[in-house]
Simulated scan of single mutants.
Amino acid sequence: MKISRRNFLKGSAMAGALTVLPKVDAHAAPAPESYATLIDLSKCDGCAGKDTPLCVAGCRSGRAQDFPEPIQDQVRDYWPQKKHEDWSNKRHVTDRFTPYNWLFVQQVQVGGQTLSIPRRCMHCDNPPCVKLCPFGINHKTPEGPVYIQENLCMGGAKCRNVCPWSVPQRQAGVGLYTYIQDYLPMGGGVMFKCDLCRKELVQGGTPHCISACPKDAMSIGSREAILARAEELKDEYDGDIYGMDENGGTSTIYVSPVAFSEIDAALQKAAAEQGTKKVVRLNKPENMLEKQKGLALLSLVAPVIGAVAAFGLAGRKTTDEEVQK
């Protein structure tokens, strides 16, 4: 079989590329000293009668100093796109994730009853937003919180793309991006999300949302204690648990008297009836690290397979020519 120099070099280069395959660990054990939070859906009523659920209000008031203040003449379209994300004039929005609203309460009708579901970052045990951030500024602390180093964030939104719940949200006109967008168009601002009030935790405090809950529907403690309590409540309610295994496991654990498969189906149905394109689901998402690892492997292996196939075809062509002679 005759192999051209070009095909040989191509095949060698692609084979060599396999040695730089991203080392993405899709299974990591959380630190023993880490916190977990428990959200008991049997207790949460969304603060009925209040304009804003108290957990949401507590988060917004307690973390107001950390919300973005964009420079308006730096709020520009993300080149080459003709759009940008600016929530600075929509700070009042409390029914979805925004750079100014890191927690919201989702309500859904299931089996004749209304369930209220506080939604915030799940603080995954092995977060894809941390592993796959191209700028390396997402972090998982030993205590459990996952946070974004906002002073270094470029707003590329990869963290949102790989999050099964689309938690991080982008605000234009802030951060390092404003200094480079005239010269190097990349990113688009800064990503913001719940960090479980990590500074308060380090100082022995409690996240604002948990302190504000009047129903004790949200609690925080050692991971071991929270998981044990979740199992107790599951047995007590003959209910269901969400968060222990989803996306490889999380530090946010929900317990419900209703199966989460039923809740997720109801969420999707309500979204379809309301014409809502996006809904924050309570499904069984695929592990994004496993998916990204597979895609990375495929992207590197495919050219190698192609090169090997080319070698094989080259050999077959030579054989055919010899037969013809």
Score class of each variant (00 low, 15 high):
residue 154 M to T: 04
residue 118 P to E: 07
residue 192 F to C: 07
residue 161 N to T: 12
residue 154 M to R: 05
residue 142 P to W: 08
residue 194 C to M: 05
residue 154 M to V: 03
residue 182 D to Q: 09
residue 150 E to M: 11
residue 168 P to T: 02
residue 173 G to D: 03
residue 196 L to A: 12
residue 119 R to C: 14
residue 143 E to H: 09
residue 145 P to R: 07
residue 125 D to N: 15
residue 136 G to S: 12
residue 115 L to A: 14
residue 189 G to Y: 02
residue 129 C to S: 05
residue 186 M to N: 11
residue 160 R to S: 10
residue 174 V to F: 04
residue 143 E to G: 12
residue 165 W to M: 07
residue 184 L to T: 13
residue 147 Y to S: 10
residue 152 L to D: 14
residue 165 W to V: 06
residue 179 Y to K: 15
residue 122 M to V: 02
residue 119 R to N: 13
residue 196 L to E: 12
residue 166 S to C: 07
residue 117 I to G: 04
residue 151 N to M: 10
residue 147 Y to E: 09
residue 180 I to H: 11
residue 174 V to T: 13
residue 155 G to P: 00
residue 163 C to A: 02
residue 181 Q to G: 02
residue 196 L to P: 02
residue 187 G to Y: 04
residue 160 R to V: 07
residue 130 V to Q: 10
residue 160 R to A: 10
residue 127 P to F: 00
residue 171 Q to T: 06
residue 148 I to V: 14
residue 172 A to W: 05
residue 142 P to R: 12
residue 160 R to F: 05
residue 189 G to D: 01
residue 140 K to H: 13
residue 115 L to G: 10
residue 134 P to Y: 13
residue 127 P to N: 07
residue 153 C to T: 09
residue 162 V to D: 00
residue 170 R to V: 03
residue 171 Q to K: 10
residue 138 N to W: 15
residue 152 L to F: 13
residue 126 N to D: 11
residue 169 Q to C: 10
residue 185 P to Q: 05
residue 119 R to S: 11
residue 160 R to L: 09
residue 187 G to N: 06
residue 180 I to R: 08
residue 140 K to N: 12
residue 138 N to G: 11
residue 179 Y to A: 14
residue 135 F to P: 05
residue 141 T to D: 15
residue 151 N to F: 11
residue 163 C to Q: 01
residue 116 S to V: 02
residue 136 G to I: 10
residue 162 V to Y: 00
residue 179 Y to S: 15
residue 174 V to K: 04
residue 136 G to Y: 09
residue 163 C to M: 01
residue 114 T to H: 07
residue 185 P to S: 03
residue 128 P to T: 07
